[in-house]
Amino acid sequence: MSDLLWWVFASLAIGGGLGMVTRKNPIASLLFLVLTFFSLAALYVLLGAHFIAAIQVIVYAGAIMVLFLFVIMLLNLGHDYRPDVRGGAWIVAGFATAGLTGWLLTRVLTTEGAVVAQGGELEIAAAVREWNAVGAIALPLFRDYLVPFELTSVLLLVAIIGAVLLAKRRV
């Protein structure tokens, strides 16, 4: 059952990604991306990482993409269908993508990658039982990775201040 669901959502995620890059209509593109995000969340659930799945949907599918949709609709961008990438850039982009995909696939398909993935869900399940779904994320975040975590929040703060500076003419 889990395997079947994995195949369903994995193909939906890849299909959504393909649809996102091939559609010319920005709204369609965006909805395909939402489909990808949602399928990724479903894959996280299959791994037992419920919290990550919920955050994936709340933050990416629910907040960021809605803002994108809002911007697209507000600026009425749905009518300009000229391609962004022109001329020889296609070939370079194609080779780079193919290379990256190939490298990723070899990493994933080699035994080393498979061994790392083995038993991961059991570890997650044990952590969730002990500290519950939120605690299992919060503990390492605030104990082992406190400095990177705080630095990330500073980065976000910088982004917010930058946005305010750009939006306001006189500060």
């Binding site: 939402v34 799945a53 919920a54 955050i55 709340i58 599918a61 907040a63 949709l69």
Partner: peptide, 25 residues
């Protein structure tokens, strides 16, 4: 009884916007 409980509800509520926005658009 999901381990994420109410976060599941928040996640789905945030998806509910798409229906309304798309209907309007």
């Amino acid at each position: 009884d999901l381990p994420i409980g109410i976060l599941y509800i928040l996640a789905l509520t945030s998806l509910g916007v798409y229906g309304i926005v798309m209907a309007g658009w």
